[in-house]
Simulated assay, not measured.
Amino acid sequence: MSMQTLENVAQQWQTSVVESIINMVNAEDGDFGAIAKLSQAVNDVSSINKMIEFLCNHPQCKRAFEERPRLGNVDLQLLHQLPENTLGYAYANHMIKNNLTPLQGNFGDSNYQFLAAHLTETHDIWHIVTGCDTNITGEIKLEAFYVAQLYASRFWLALLTKNLLKAVVFDIEVSSKYMDALTEGWLMAKQAKPLFGIQWNTLWETSLEEVRNSLTISN
């Protein structure tokens, strides 16, 4: 492939990323179609490989890529019968209260497919463990947490960028609130142990406080 061709490919990729972010700015919050297009645009092979390499420096994360833990079928009604202080109850209550169903990851044979699927199906558990709400500031806080814990996480950084651009364009008054949420999520992630690769379904009956303490997460 010629140098000119490589430059053209890079330029096309950059244009696609910018267009996807602009589309996200114009879309309603929670537009999963726009989010999927953004993910496809920003997740290049090079940065994903760097992310996987970074994660594999931690034994828990490396083992996850080898064993590929699955969350399995989640019975929210059954989990909702657990004691109210448990992780399982907190997760089920969060899902039921927000009328959500557990996200299903598309698991395949590659490390990339596992990475994407594992993050997808455990996303709402990360909400619970970090204490990040599902409102816009809670999402920004969790996005910053992802950026700090996942090296070269272009997708989560793009989502943060989208939210900051929305503040610039539509409501500058929320900028301080957004920056506070970003800072809190970033600092929380820096002091916390990795959440990636945890076999969460073995912890349903464990108290949420105990889970957070074991991960050095203060909320």
Score class of each variant (00 low, 15 high):
Gln199Lys: 12
Leu38Ser: 00
His80Thr: 04
Leu160Asp: 00
Ile48Tyr: 01
Pro59Gly: 09
Ser20Val: 02
Tyr151Pro: 03
Leu182Asp: 00
Asn8His: 13
Tyr146Thr: 04
Gln113Arg: 14
Met188Phe: 06
Leu157Val: 03
Ser153Glu: 07
Ser110Gln: 15
Phe32Ser: 15
Val168Lys: 14
His80Phe: 05
Ala116Met: 15
Gln60Asn: 11
Pro83Trp: 10
Trp156Asn: 12
Lys97Met: 10
Gln12Met: 13
His118Gln: 08
Asp133Met: 10
Leu78Pro: 04
Asn26Pro: 03
Thr161Leu: 11
Trp156Ser: 11
Phe170Val: 06
Pro59Val: 09
His127Gly: 02
Ser16Gly: 11
Lys193Met: 10
Ala144Leu: 06
Met24Trp: 02
Gln77Trp: 08
Asn106Asp: 15
Phe145Thr: 04
Lys50Ala: 07
Tyr91Gly: 03
Ala167Leu: 10
Gly33Asn: 15
Gly185Trp: 02
Ile48Gln: 05
Asn26Tyr: 12
Asn93Pro: 05
Leu87Cys: 08
Gln14Ile: 07
Gln11Ile: 09
Leu103Ser: 08
Ala181Trp: 00
Ala64Tyr: 02
Gln40Trp: 04
Val9Cys: 03
Gln104Lys: 13
Ser207Gln: 09
Asn213Lys: 15
Met188Lys: 09
Thr183Trp: 07
Leu215Cys: 11
Gln149Glu: 13
Thr86Phe: 05
Arg70Val: 05
Ala158Ile: 02
Glu121Gln: 05
Pro69Leu: 03
Phe54Val: 00
Glu53Phe: 09
Phe107Gly: 01
Ser39Trp: 05
Leu195Gln: 03
Tyr151Gly: 06
Val169Asn: 13
Ala158Tyr: 01
Ile198Gln: 01
Glu143Thr: 06
Ser214Thr: 07
Glu66Tyr: 04
Ala158Gln: 00
Leu150Cys: 04
Gln104Arg: 11
Met95Leu: 06
Gln191Met: 11
Gly197Pro: 00
Glu184Ser: 11
Asn8Gln: 15
Trp126Gly: 00
Ser16Val: 06
Pro83His: 11
Asn99Ile: 05
